[in-house]
Write a protein that binds this DNA or RNA. Structure first.
Lengths: 188, 188
DNA sequence: GCAAATTAATGATTTATTCAAG
DNA sequence: CTTGAATAAATCATTAATTTGC
């Protein structure tokens, strides 16, 4: 449907989406890349996410997440973890918004009464993820490079082709859930 | 606060694994590795874990976990996730045991109620956490032990330009948890 | 008009609760 | 019953949006 409300857009003067602020951050020279700590969905990504969320299919779970991530990666850097977190937060936030506010007078345009799916079926993502991770079972000789990184925001931006690489990053190893496992550091 | 309402889990019971999980990994070795088993620490592993736990260094997090995992992997299949979960559960369980067990008296138990790491507070320092970059310079000596799971982002990253961009590598302190691993292969 | 300070929003991590395998 | 694993709630931390001062 065509109902794409701008959820959490509070008093925003509709700047965020309407006023496409072109590529944030990187912009111009691209030196501004000092630290991208937390992912910020681009308008397009956000739109897609919300649409999916509105479809009410519940938590995407694995494969779905991967798919979504892939799609979104076409529009900017993103990772499965980001997607997962986004859905988690989204759901929690919606729920809370509903029950918490008391008699929320949704008079203005602050509505957003989305509140999860009508079914509210806690859809357990246990469907069938046919977990077949080829996984290098090499216990001993497993010289797995294990890059362990994620969110390479900038380069992706600076190099249009980067997106492809990134995509590749998550593709190959069908490890598992999107959970945080991705961007944890191995340093120190 | 009280408990939230229990999830009314659809009690889908059974069906979950039915035949889908039939991953006949069945081992060649004869160990019961059905694919979706839950990890069971071997006595040795357990011993090590408990010893570490008793040291009271709190949650190991990151590097520590990796190290521990590596060590434990010498005694049986295991993953960082397992280790992480174990510590999580351990701590939670201890705490619960203490308070709910009976006496509410907050006596001076030397228990590990709030141990945490001596040096850092829960790895939540405001130092800086800008870990998003794949360190081009893969950790030398990164002898990835039977990692075989979780993020393996290889990413070639042979773009010299990258170095320029990555001006801030800093030290990703700690970040994430290891999440739940849906299914890892347990080929032991 | 811009930039530092402030506030609100929200991505990410931690903690608590629950489920189910052995 | 024990306890590994998964989910959801709570909390934290950081970024964007907005406000204020110059």
């Amino acid at each position: 449907l065509s109902k794409i409300e701008q959820h959490a857009l509070p008093a925003t003067s509709g700047t965020r989406l309407g006023n496409l602020y072109c590529d944030p951050l990187i912009t111009s020279a691209g030196h501004r890349i000092s630290g991208r700590q937390r992912w910020t969905p681009t308008p397009v990504q956000l739109q897609i996410l919300e649409r999916i969320f509105d479809q009410g299919n519940g938590t995407p779970s694995k494969q779905k997440i991967k798919d979504i991530t892939f799609e979104l990666s076409q529009h900017g850097q993103i990772s499965e973890t980001n997607v997962y977190n986004w859905f988690q937060n989204r759901r929690a936030r919606s729920k809370r918004k509903q029950q918490g506010g008391g008699a929320m007078n949704n008079v203005e345009s602050e509505v957003e009464t989305e509140v999860e799916s009508p079914n509210e079926k806690k859809t357990k993502p246990e469907d069938l993820q046919s977990s077949h991770m080829p996984t290098s079972r090499a216990e001993e000789g497993n010289s797995n490079p294990a890059g362990s990184f994620d969110q390479l925001s900038f380069y992706a931006m600076s190099n249009p082709r980067m997106g492809q690489l990134i995509e590749k990053m998550e593709e190959p190893t069908s490890y598992h859930p999107y959970l945080h496992t991705e961007n944890y550091d191995m340093t120190s």
